[in-house]
């Protein structure tokens, strides 16, 4: 091929690159998205350390380290490229830690991470292929396997292991709205401070990582249904795992529907199941189960909520 006689010093024998359009790509990558999610989780992390002390930090570090470690080990054993740097395992680790009490024995945290990363994510094909949210499955596994340890909460501001009920337990009403908002009550790490979760939500919206639809519909519908059955809507919204679940887990890309319509169906389903469990079930908390339950319906929701392409309207009607 002919070379341009313009810059003899820089002349090379490299052929011109032949690449298909578009030549431009956006700066957003899987890694940058996951980094944003980690940043959005930071306020809740800080809140948990303030409320529960250093053990909260320890649980989080162990959880993140074991999630990333399992992912690294999996890639190593399978001889596939190392995917730890996409940061998705770190996000799972953070979320798993936020779903357990600060008093949980560390070996249980590691077990939960194994279930989340290896059993839920990697065995189904790794990032993007899991049908259920890894952190939620990890939490449910721990709750079912170690019910006592998972329900032992430390009272805020003390280091004593006090088995105190979460605000959603029947003894509810013991906390003011302000205490609920700031998170000054017992519970799992990430479920306490509503304010910290909302700050993270705001960040995700600004960075366009998620849209407002799912969290707002989910939480709003739970509030509405609480009102209908005569419960305190604000207490229902501010306590338990609702905000954490609605903002960080019901918006997980992989395990929720693709289109906006599908996402709305998903959010409504989550709200209904949450309320059924909270109001009429044996469990105090229904968020994790409701999201897992709805995760299973995603392929079916996707199939019936596909967008109609522009220009495809008439054809579809004709059928």
């Amino acid at each position: 091929m002919e070379q341009l006689p313009l810059h003899p010093a820089e002349e090379t024998n490299q052929p011109l690159l032949l690449l298909t359009a578009p030549q431009l790509t956006s700066p957003v990558s899987t890694q940058s998205i996951m980094r944003d999610v980690l940043i959005a989780l930071a306020p809740a992390f800080v809140a948990s350390v303030v409320v529960f002390g250093w053990r909260a930090a320890l649980v989080t570090v162990v959880s993140v380290a074991s999630c990333v470690g399992f992912e690294w080990l999996w890639c190593r054993l399978r001889k596939t490229p190392n995917t730890c740097w996409d940061l998705s395992a770190a996000v799972t680790g953070m979320l798993l830690a936020f779903n357990v009490p600060s008093t949980l024995p560390l070996y249980m945290v590691v077990l939960g991470a194994f279930v989340a990363i290896v059993l839920t994510k990697e065995l189904f094909g790794g990032i993007g292929c899991n049908f259920a949210n890894p952190a939620i499955v990890g939490r449910i596994f721990l709750a079912v396997s170690f019910p006592a340890a998972m329900a032992t909460f430390v009272a805020p501001g003390s280091v004593d292991l006090v088995s105190s009920a979460t605000p959603l337990a029947p003894a509810s009403g013991a906390h003011t709205y302000l205490e609920l908002l700031l998170g000054l009550h017992g519970g799992v790490l990430g479920e306490t401070s509503a304010l910290a979760i909302l700050i993270g939500f705001g960040y995700l919206l600004v960075r366009r990582v998620i849209t407002w639809h799912v969290p707002v519909v989910y939480v709003g519908l739970v509030a509405l249904l609480s009102l209908l059955v005569g419960r305190d809507p604000l207490a229902q919204v501010l306590s338990g795992g609702l905000l954490l679940g609605a903002v960080f887990m019901a918006t997980d890309y992989t395990t929720t529907p693709a289109t906006l319509r599908g996402k709305l169906v998903f959010a409504v389903g989550c709200a209904l199941v949450t309320c059924l469990i909270r109001f009429y079930g044996n469990l105090n908390e229904g968020v994790a189960y409701s999201i897992l339950f709805m995760n299973l319906f995603v392929p079916h929701i996707d199939a019936v909520t596909r967008n109609t392409p522009v220009g495809g309207e008439r054809v579809r009607k004709g059928r």
């Binding site: 996409d86 890309y253 906006l260």
Partner: peptide
């Protein structure tokens, strides 16, 4: 890298 099902392509396609 692997698709993470973020639906950005679906949300942004001008032809839906």
């Amino acid at each position: 890298t692997a698709c993470i099902r973020c639906s950005a392509c679906i949300d942004n396609c001008p032809m839906r």
